[in-house]
């Protein structure tokens, strides 16, 4: 394939990865920003979203979009409720202490993974996409007599992948509106800013924490549902999701939603673009070092306030 179409394809694939990553990372960023804790089990909520989608789709049955739509509606809610319950049962009782939360969520990670292995099994299982037409993309070239369109071999995208990008953008826009325009968002931001003062103003901080934790997990689960027609549900899929979204959150700057979005684009795109130029494993190494060096020379992240 020629260079131009190859790069184009890498960009499209990067955009899909970025969209999924932005959703997952937004959830982690929310929890990180508001509660100041690292949720090591975040990737498992992403995995649970995908697994729950498989169960819902299998229960509804049929080849049409109904199964997928039901999964899209139900799976994130279920995961959200589960996470909020875990917060109330465990994290609240250790007062959201940062170090203890790491251990507790590692424990939660083991529990969720093993439970999934027993209930769902070790196989990767697909959910049929609601629609999945292949769209060939034209590529302009100069020929004698002017611009002509060609159809390079392999340059294409599926309608479902476009839907994933659009859905992620819509959800993130909704999240942004909720945080900035609604009372619930105000309460969350107030809690993030100063927990003591928020308590003094009568904000039920514990309940806000549980809801935030649930919302963060729900966003991860939603990303899991969106990805399952592309990548299948598997009980170990949470590990990479956690690492990548963790990186995105820090690069973007703690608690900054626009920063998270930009960082997700940076990470999602950089791997794709670098892979056009280098052998794949070397490309991964270079992309990893590149991102690490961004942090070394800008430790507060791209959008973080300096000297925090």
């Amino acid at each position: 394939m020629d260079f131009g179409p190859h790069l184009m394809l890498a960009l499209i694939e990067g955009a899909v990865l970025s969209a999924v990553l932005a959703l997952t990372a937004a959830g982690l960023s929310l929890v990180f920003g508001v509660m100041r804790v690292v949720n090591v089990a975040h990737g498992e909520f992403y995995m649970l979203g995908a697994v729950a989608a498989w169960f819902v789709a299998a229960a509804v049955g049929g080849a049409g979009p109904a199964a997928f739509l039901a999964a899209l509606a139900l799976a994130p809610l279920a995961v959200c409720a589960l996470a909020a319950a875990a917060d109330l049962a465990v994290l609240r009782r250790i007062a959201h202490d940062p170090e203890r939360t790491i251990v507790a969520t590692i424990g939660l990670l083991y529990i969720l993974q093993q439970a999934t292995l027993m209930g769902f099994g070790p196989d990767a299982r697909p959910v049929a996409p609601p629609f999945n037409a292949r769209i060939a993309i034209p590529w302009p070239v100069w020929e004698e007599g002017g611009l002509a369109l060609t159809w390079p071999w392999g340059l294409s995208v599926t309608t479902y992948k476009l839907f994933v990008i659009a859905a992620a953008a819509a959800v993130l826009a909704g999240l942004w509106l909720m945080l900035t325009r609604t009372r619930a968002g105000l309460v969350m931001r107030a809690t993030q800013w100063d927990r003591e003062t928020a308590t003094a103003f009568g904000i039920p901080v514990e309940r806000v924490y549980a809801l935030t934790f649930g919302l963060g997990a729900g966003l991860a689960a939603l990303a899991g549902v969106l990805v399952v027609p592309i990548q299948q549900a598997h009980y170990l899929m949470g590990g990479d999701a956690l690492l990548l979204s963790f990186i995105v959150v820090i690069i973007g700057g703690l608690g900054s939603l626009p920063g998270t979005l930009v960082a997700a684009l940076l990470i999602g795109m950089s791997e794709g673009i670098v892979s056009v130029f280098f052998s794949p494993t070397l490309a991964k190494i270079l992309a990893t070092l590149l991102v690490a060096l961004v942090l070394v020379f800008r430790p507060q992240g791209l959008f973080g306030a300096a000297g925090r």
Binding site: M1, P5, H6, L9, A10, E13, G14, V16, L17, G154, I230, Q231, M237, D240, G272, S275, V276, P280, T281, A283, K284
Partner: peptide
């Protein structure tokens, strides 16, 4: 590379 989850960009 190991741990890769999407492959389309390799096929070109």
């Amino acid at each position: 590379p190991p741990t890769e989850t999407s492959f389309t960009r390799y096929f070109p």
